[in-house]
């Protein structure tokens, strides 16, 4: 009995050690290591004190809607890693952009040159870019719509028919029972 207890304890300890060591789960699906070092929004955020107040250039898709504050406009730039950042600029610069990305539309791909602000003094501590120059790399376009799988619709309609029969049969049985 005592032996069994000790062996169970040892087994439990070994399991714990295994899990804490990370080897057991780590082989299954390890976290993605960051290998890429291209100039991206992630790079700015991971090294904030290095990039703060520096001149940078960033290329990405213009997303969403343009916001306004006084004589300035703010657009949002989506880089190739899927991160988004606000870019402030003069309204004249913003007028160069004609297509904003959303569902079904790929916005203009623009190259923005300007200053990166980890904590912007002008915009109450937001993280943003102040553009001095923008150029259109690729004009926006309409994305092909997602393909409709009609089988799903037919199956749905079939389910509705089955449901209607189920309900009618239930009603019938209920009325028979009450009679």
């Amino acid at each position: 009995m005592k032996k069994l207890f000790i062996s169970k304890g040892v087994l439990l300890f070994l399991c714990l050690l295994f899990i804490l060591n990370g080897t057991f789960f780590a082989n299954a699906n390890p976290p993605v290591k960051q290998a890429e070092k291209a100039l991206t929004i992630r790079e700015f955020l991971e090294h904030p004190f290095y990039w703060d107040q520096r001149s940078i250039s960033l290329t990405g898709e213009v997303i969403g809607q343009v916001l306004f504050s006084g004589d300035q406009a703010c657009i949002h730039l989506l880089d190739h890693e899927g991160n988004l950042i606000g870019v402030w600029m003069d309204r004249k610069l913003q007028e160069k952009i004609s297509c904003y990305g959303k569902h079904g539309i790929k916005g203009d791909t623009v190259k923005v040159e300007g200053i990166f602000h980890e904590i912007c003094t002008q915009h109450s501590g937001d993280t943003d870019l102040h553009a001095t120059k923008i150029s259109i790399v690729e004009a926006g376009s309409i994305l092909p719509p997602a393909k409709v799988v009609w089988t799903r619709l037919w199956v749905s309609l079939l389910i509705l028919v089955i449901l209607s029969f189920m309900y009618l049969r239930f009603k019938q049985r209920k009325s028979q029972f009450s009679e």
Partner: peptide, 13 residues
């Protein structure tokens, strides 16, 4: 958004 409409309708049924 036809594809989404079908997918949500399928889920509803």
């Amino acid at each position: 958004e036809w594809s989404s409409a079908v997918d949500f309708f399928f889920t509803a049924t």
